[in-house]
Design a protein around this nucleic acid. Structure first.
Length: 545
RNA sequence: GGCGACAUCGCCAAGUGGUAAGGCAGAGGUCUGCAAAACCUCUAUCAUCGGUUCGAAUCCGAUUGUCGCCUCCA
């Protein structure tokens, strides 16, 4: 079955065609390492992680490249701020207006560590900054169990290639040197067989017409963009035919993607915000340098909004990965990301009380509850199946879902990676499992014990397989649920021992048929969002999200 | 100002020509000492208006509203 994708370049939904029918070359724009990552980065990484996993499930051999941009203006700015020290004027800049005390604590701690590292090396501070945040990236993302890229190239390791690439663009007449800078000549490029603006659907002529060149720049036209920037005092630099300097933003992705995937490759991904100018310029540079089509399929993930507003640096309303992990376990975030189609915005919210006084569940909390539900379901099924031999000849029940889960899952994923529908199917499977598990002995006898066991076995196996493609429900249920409880208790400052003791007291009261006292204890725990579940001979408890 | 996207049940969210997935919340039920969990049942004609079509949430036009890109951003 073909995979249909919504390709941004052609603007159409089309079948995924790859150069080699068995292989996919895929490049995803990683992060510029000047600060900690936030849940916008997470969303992007997880969206493309699901995509890679699904392609591999469909037996494609995927070569996955994700870069680090470790040479950039913002990194240099950060280095300057660190140099100025924690009491510098930079602290009062607008972009820090929304910083909380907690934000500053983390910030100061990062800066202090970077400074300490810089003291032990001769490297420019900016490179120490980027190395530090690459490490933090790896640390912060390690718990998500993402499929690791095959290559994670860094700009600083590719200077000769970048210089050579720029020389090629100049050689073909699409770029010019001016005062140690090199600029891409949009007018020259667009005037040929190329079309600048084809990805973002902009009219190059109008942009060239309307753009202004600021007096401080050496550009011939305002839309021209820097391929190489001459060194300014105090900046890290590398040698080049145009004098010491550093690459502009965009060029690194053209160079590194074509180096590792070939001049024409299959999939390019990134956040929607990168369409213009970043990806537009990547295409222009690559097609100017290589004279071959660049990437053939472009996919962009939607934004994360916070209470309906786009999360952005300038608004200061972003949630760092660090804070996100205090709120919820990695798998909950993964579930949240995949419960929404990758192109749609995801609104992140906490549970709140609205104007009408109603409790409105926040998206993270709903996701947490669903993940808990799935693991509880699997735990019940495992328990029901423990020590049983399955008769595969017994008639299958719930055939719509048990017999066709994989098929329907693939249908959903083939349709532009619709993980939202895919998770809906997982929910159907879980409901069927719960239905079977809660059957009474005589109902089971009536239906056929072997049929029930066979169906349960098929449902759990298929559910795990299919959800596993999305990176979900791979853990042992008991181990996940234990961590889940621990995490929730910690957030609320509760102790498991204390709860167990309360439950024991309630058990004693129940044994004496002192139901008033038992109910009082139940209510006390209920007020703390703790649920008790009585079953013959034992009382289980859980946290309500 | 230029360009683009979106508007689906109280909330979240799938659905790109064939008659509205799913989740949360709500109501009723099974179960239970009472509960909870789990399961069952119920709850929408898709912003408005007009058009194309045998047939539209899905295509076209207009209107209203929200948002995004054009400056850093996944």
């Amino acid at each position: 079955m073909p995979i249909w994708i919504d390709d941004v370049l052609s603007g159409k939904k089309k079948t995924l065609e790859t150069r080699d029918p068995n292989q996919v070359g895929m490049y995803v724009c990683g992060v510029t390492v000047y600060d900690r990552c936030h849940i916008g980065h997470l969303r992007s990484m997880l969206s493309f992680d699901a995509l890679v996993r699904y392609l591999e499930y469909q037996r494609y051999q995927v070569r996955y490249v994700r870069n680090f941009t470790d040479v950039d203006d913002k990194i240099i700015d950060r280095a300057r701020e660190i140099e100025a020290g924690p009491d510098g004027d930079w602290r009062r800049a607008d972009r820090y207006a929304t910083f909380t005390a907690g934000d500053w604590t983390l910030r100061d701690s990062d800066d202090a560590q970077i400074r300490a590292r810089a003291d032990r090396t001769d490297k420019p501070l900016a490179l120490v900054v980027s190395e530090y945040f690459i490490e933090k990236f790896q640390e912060d993302f390690s718990c998500f169990g993402m499929r690791a890229p095959d290559v994670e190239p860094k700009v600083s390791d590719h200077m000769p290639q970048i210089v050579e690439y720029i020389e090629r663009i100049i050689g073909r007449g699409y770029a010019y040197e001016a005062g140690g800078d090199v600029y891409f000549n949009v007018a020259a490029y667009d005037g040929t067989t190329h079309a600048y603006g084809k990805l973002s659907r902009r009219d190059a002529a109008a942009m060239i017409e309307g753009a202004r060149v600021s007096p401080s720049e050496n550009k011939r036209n305002g839309v021209d963009f820097a391929l190489w920037k001459a060194q300014k005092p105090g900046e890290p630099s590398w040698p080049s035919p145009w004098g010491p300097g550093r690459p502009g933003w965009h060029i690194e992705c053209s160079v590194m993607s074509t180096q590792y995937l070939g001049t024409t490759f299959d999939i390019h991904g990134g956040g929607k915000d990168l369409i213009f100018p970043h990806h537009e310029n990547e295409i222009a540079q690559a097609e100017a340098a290589c004279d071959a089509p660049f990437c053939t399929n472009w996919l962009h993930n939607g934004f994360v909004t916070v209470d309906g507003v786009k999360m952005s640096k300038s608004l200061g309303n972003f949630l760092s990965l660090h804070d996100a992990l205090e709120l919820a376990l990695p798998e909950v975030w993964r579930f949240l990301v995949q419960s929404v189609h990758y192109q749609s915005p995801i609104d992140f919210s906490r549970t709140r009380i609205n104007e009408a006084g109603e409790r409105v569940r926040g998206s993270v909390d709903v996701a947490a509850e669903r993940v808990q539900y799935f693991y509880q379901t699997l735990a019940r099924a495992d328990e029901a199946l423990a020590g049983r031999t399955v008769n595969f000849e017994a008639p299958l029940l719930h055939t719509q879902i048990a017999g066709h889960l994989q098929e329907r899952f693939c249908e959903a994923m083939d349709d532009n990676f619709n993980t939202a529908v895919a998770l809906g199917l997982c929910g159907e499977a879980a409901r069927a499992i719960n239905e079977l598990v809660s059957l009474k002995a005589k109902e089971i006898k009536k239906i056929g014990e072997e049929s029930v066991a066979h169906t349960l076995h098929v449902l759990t196996t298929r559910l795990r397989e299919v959800a596993g493609v999305l990176g979900l429900f791979l853990e042992e249920p008991e181990s996940f649920l234990a961590r889940f409880r621990a995490h929730e208790l910690k957030k609320r400052g509760l102790q498991a021992d204390w709860i167990e003791q309360k439950i024991a007291e309630r058990g004693a009261a129940k044994a004496e048929r002192d139901f008033a006292r038992a109910d009082a204890i139940r209510l006390e725990l209920d007020a703390l969002a703790l649920e008790l579940r009585d079953s013959p001979g034992r009382t289980d408890w859980d946290v309500r999200v």
